[in-house]
Amino acid sequence: MVGRLTALLAALRTGRLTLPYPYQPAPAPRSYRGPPVFLDDCIGCGACTYACPAGALSLRYLAGDDVVVLEHSVARCIFCMLCADVCPMEAVRRTSVYELATDNPAELVQRLEHRPAHCADCGAAYSTLRAVSEAAGRVGGIQRYMLRCPGCRAVEVASVIASSRRGGGLA
């Protein structure tokens, strides 16, 4: 009997806890990790696409290598914010949004378009113009290797080594 009274008292003391949500907004705390938003400071370097554990981010070369698209899919995102941790431009902002349900799947995707950088040797798109110029700014000027795609860089390094060899066992 005593126990039942205790429970009754506890229930009365607690009162009603249910909120009249959604008729009244129930904002998440400021520290809540909602989906990230990618700002215009993005240079399209792709660091976030490499870090993302969920595969929610991709950097793709479209329209015959004429445009580079950074795409973020909220549907795949796990809101871990590793993209913000690795971004060299601080171009990823955390939001506290949680009402993400939609009947339009396109709303779940954010796209940022960049102009690609083309390799000075083979012409293939390998990065974005903004990423190359940002890199040049950070090391104090354009370096020869920056204008070439990783493949052509490797070929150039190899041919420099080969041409500097004199004698030795292998031709």
Partner: peptide, 25 residues
């Protein structure tokens, strides 16, 4: 119900500390 109501306080503290109720990342 009563225990889950009290537990809710613990969950919201976790949310404020880490940004999520359960998946702290």
């Amino acid at each position: 119900m009563q225990l889950m109501a009290v537990r809710e306080e613990v969950m919201s503290v976790a949310e404020e500390l880490t940004g999520n109720r359960k998946t702290y990342s």
